[in-house]
Computed example of a mutant assay.
Amino acid sequence: MDNDAKVAAALEDVSGEEKAESIEDGGEEKRKPQTMSIARDVVDIAFKVVLICAALFGLVEYFDRQHESQIRYSLVLADDWEDKSYYEDFAYFSTLSQALLENTVAKTGADLQGATRAVSNKVADVLQYDLAAIEEVKDLYPDFAPEKFDRAVDRLNYFFARVGLCARDSVCDPGLVNDYYGASSCFLFDILETHILWVREENSNKGYAKLLQFLCFEYRAT
Rank of each mutant, 00 (worst) to 15 (best):
F187A: 03
A39N: 04
L112K: 12
V105T: 11
E24Q: 05
F57C: 07
A124P: 03
A115Q: 02
Q128A: 09
I191Q: 03
R200G: 05
S184H: 01
T222Q: 03
V7I: 07
S120A: 10
V123M: 13
P142S: 13
T222R: 01
V14M: 00
F93T: 05
S85A: 15
K32G: 01
H67Y: 07
P33L: 01
E29D: 10
A133D: 03
L100T: 00
K84E: 15
V126K: 05
E68C: 08
L127V: 05
A46S: 13
R65M: 09
A133C: 06
R162F: 02
F189G: 02
S184C: 01
F160P: 07
I52N: 08
W81E: 15
A145R: 11
H195Q: 02
G16M: 00
D2A: 02
F57P: 00
S97H: 06
N178V: 04
N178S: 11
L59N: 01
V76E: 13
F144N: 10
G175V: 08
A8L: 09
N157S: 14
K32W: 04
V42D: 06
E28G: 08
Y219C: 06
F57Q: 04
D150N: 13
I38W: 06
D4L: 12
L212F: 02
D139K: 13
V43L: 13
D13L: 07
A106V: 11
